[in-house]
Each structure stands twice: as C-alpha cells, then as structure tokens.
Design a protein around this nucleic acid. Structure first.
Lengths: 148, 148
DNA sequence: GTATAAACTAAGCCTTGGCTAAATTATAAG
DNA sequence: CTTATAATTTAGCCAAGGCTTAGTTTATAC
C-alpha cells in the first residue's frame, strides 16, 4: 500500500508522466520499422498492403503513417513501390527487436504462457528502461541455467 | 532470435496491435482517476491545478481531459469546484492502483532500483494482462519469503 | 468591502492516428 | 494489348490530447 499522507513531489511525478508520453510518441515508429524489417527479412520486401494488414489498420492509415516515417527519416519509398528502411530506420528496428525479444523471453522465463507473453511484450516493450532490461536479461540467464 | 522465414499470422499480429491501441485509449483515464484518488486521500480534495501540475500538463489540457472523463462517467465536478470520482471512477482507480502497485513491487523484487521501478511501472502498468499480473504476484511472494 | 492574485474556463490552433470514399497507378489475365 | 483486379494515394472527416492566449470566477489580503 502507498504511504499514507504522502504523495511524490509534484515535479517528479510530472516528469514521469511526461516521459511516458514521450515514449508513446515513438511507439508507432518502432512498431512500424520493426515490422518492415521483419517483412523484408522474410518476404524479401515490405509492401504497404502487408504492413497495413499486420498492423491491423487500413491501407490509407498505414500510408499516412509511412509518409510521416519517411518525413522523419526512418523509411524510404517511391510512390506505388515497396518500402525500405534507412540506416536510421534499420538501427531503430534492430534496437527495437532486441528489446522486444528480451521482454518476451523474460515473460516466458518467469512462467507466463507463450500467447500472453506474445501479447504483453508488444505493449510493454516501449516502457522498459535500460536498467530494467538489464535485470530482465539477468533473470533470463538465471532461469535458463539451473541444471541440478 | 526470431524464427527464420516465419512471421506470425497476419490476423493474429493485427489483433495484438489493435489490443495495444485499445489499452492506450484507457491509459489517460486510468492515470487521471488514480491521481485524483490519491489527491483526495491525501489532501482531502482534488483541485484542477494540482491534477495539472502532477500530470505535467497545462491547466487547460487537464480541464479538457476532465471534461471528457466527466462525459464518460468517471468524475464529477461543478465549474470552478473540486473534482470527485463517481463509483465507476473509484472502481477504476482502485483497480488501477492495485495493478500499478503490483508492477512496482514486482520490479523492486527482481532487483530494479526504486527510482527506475517508479518510472517504469508508470508506463508498464497499462500493458500487463491478468495472467502476467498473477505471475508477478507469485514472484513477489517467492522473492520476499526466502528464509534459509 | 474592494483590489489583486490565483484558479478555472473558453476559444482556437496543432499533430497523431484512426476511418471511408474516390481516384490513380501497377499488375495480371485473356 | 487491352481490360479487369489489386495496390496505392488523395481528400476529407473525426477524436484525443497537447498547446497558447484571453476572459471569468473565486479566494485572499488589506
């Protein structure tokens, strides 16, 4: 239970919420580049139609989002052609995938089901700091080693 | 590393992203009612000025958000007066606080620092399913008991 | 009891990220 | 090589959640 009669300092609490909002802003970008990277690896290319269907949005929505990503330097594509990641996009995709995988493996390692780990890691990955990620990695190692 | 040459089924992946987006929509509501509940407990009342400063937003922004929460039945207030939670609002605040505390305690119990646990739990709490929450609780119990 | 300060609301603007409907371009089929 | 289909873009709408600037209301101080 929280300390009775005590609230965190206003400016500290504000800073945390502000930070969460910041993280939110990059979520879409991370999800898109991660997906595009996957599509390129597996299908050889990333088409809008696949991005849209896998993101669960309509094609115009995906199109608009991709225009933003292009504006911000994460992807590259010519009209009616498939989508490519810039170096910046690739870097973000790699970092993002790594984080995603750690969160996923961590959840599995503490006993969460495969399906739930898949679902929860999708939402959680964007809110896990470097420090927590490090702890997650340690836990994964510990829970995989114990050979008695 | 992810399975080479295999992507999850499009409709399943889409469903997960859709679900994360759904969670997003309720985040603001949860954060606000949780904070309002805290303010009422500790200060006896919740004033807009405090909500705004603790959420890290301007007063007009808080005002607009609260109007939405009122429209949706979570809070109640008359112009220029302090803010009250409806039964629905109280229920959500309680549920939300509980979830928040479990995530926070969980992070602490696996070795994350107090400060980081505070920060990360703020963002993570909205993306943790019931199943994962249950596992978190188990881990908290296990990590607090070990008396050799 | 009236001035001044603080709290709140109103109005208007912006971006993101959804949507649909309609137009355009590429691709595939005949 | 033309036509039908599929993919993509364009245009326009909406809500959420930020902001600033300006106006009201309430509370405080003298």
């Amino acid at each position: 239970m929280r300390d009775e009669g005590k609230l965190p300092e206003a400016h500290e609490q504000a800073a945390r919420f502000t930070q969460v909002r910041e993280a939110h802003k990059t979520e879409a970008t991370e999800d898109y580049v991660e997906l595009i990277d996957d599509l390129i690896r597996v299908h050889g290319e990333a088409r809008l139609v696949d991005v849209a269907s896998r993101m669960g949005v309509t094609q115009p929505t995906a199109s608009k989002t991709l225009a933003r990503l292009q504006r911000d330097g994460f992807v590259n594509s010519e009209p009616y052609r498939s989508i490519f990641l810039t170096d910046q996009g690739k870097a973000l995709a790699t970092e993002s995938r790594l984080r995603h995988e750690i969160v996923f493996e961590f959840l599995l390692s503490i006993g969460v089901s495969h399906e739930t780990a898949t679902r929860d890691s999708e939402g959680m990955e964007h809110h896990v700091s470097e420090e927590t990620l490090k702890v997650f990695k340690k836990v994964i190692r510990q829970n995989s080693k114990p050979k008695p």
